Simulated scan of single mutants.
Amino acid sequence: MADKLEAASRSHFGKGASRRLRRDGRVPAVIYGHGADPVHVSVDAHEIFLATKGQANPILTVVVDGRDQLVLVKELQRNPLSRAIEHLDLLRVASGEKVEVEVPIEVTGESAPGTIHTIELMHVLVKAPATHIPEAVVVDVEGREDGSHVTVADLALPAGVESEADPETIVVVVSTPQATDLPEEAPVEAEAAEAPAPSAEG
């Protein structure tokens, strides 16, 4: 079920207005899509942090002027230092429609003894029902041998979810790690220090 947030309409724009909102604990956002005019709003900073925490493609119900709007968080901008959310792009969606989103790859299982797996594709582009976007696409490498790989075509996607990526794209590779040849250290030969000869007194 989508988290529900109260949003306040805003009519002042620009960097100065956005800074004032953030000082007041609000985050500026824009709601767009479905052929309607964009709506500029702000939401509570703490509430939006909790609603989006740990989610790749959060779906929210935003209440604007008493009306519920189902939205997908399409872009989330953060402060590069504090990581606080600074702005949101919210795409209007309907419960029955499909949307294109990037979903993270998650690997489970252990490959054959002596091998390791390498993730070549961190996210895969899919088309999924707006209200049933998978949190991750799981790749099971249990028992896979050296040299085997998983492509986009091999992915087990949930019902109703379609891949939009090239089916031949490699997602995970299983290989045997190569030992690093370290150069041998040359033996250090101690050189005897020559003591200065005592000077003869005349």
Rank of each mutant, 00 (worst) to 15 (best):
V173H: 15
G147W: 04
A7Q: 00
V152L: 09
K98G: 01
E106Q: 13
V73F: 05
S111V: 02
S95Q: 08
E145A: 15
V172T: 11
E168C: 05
A7N: 01
H117K: 07
E120Y: 10
V93N: 04
L88T: 11
A159M: 08
E120R: 14
R92S: 01
E6D: 08
V188P: 05
R144H: 09
A195C: 07
D140H: 00
A17E: 12
A45S: 12
V173S: 14
D3T: 09
A186N: 11
V103H: 01
A190C: 05
A165V: 08
H12R: 15
I59S: 07
V138P: 01
E100N: 11
I59R: 05
D89A: 10
A29Q: 13
P28A: 09
D146G: 06
E189L: 12
H34E: 01
A29Y: 06
A130T: 03
D44G: 14
D44T: 06
G202R: 12
I31C: 07
L125T: 10
Q77H: 10
V73S: 11
V39W: 00
A51F: 11
T61N: 15
V173G: 06
A2E: 06
V137E: 02
I48F: 07
R22N: 12
V173R: 12
V93M: 07
Y32A: 05
G54K: 15
V99I: 09
V73W: 03
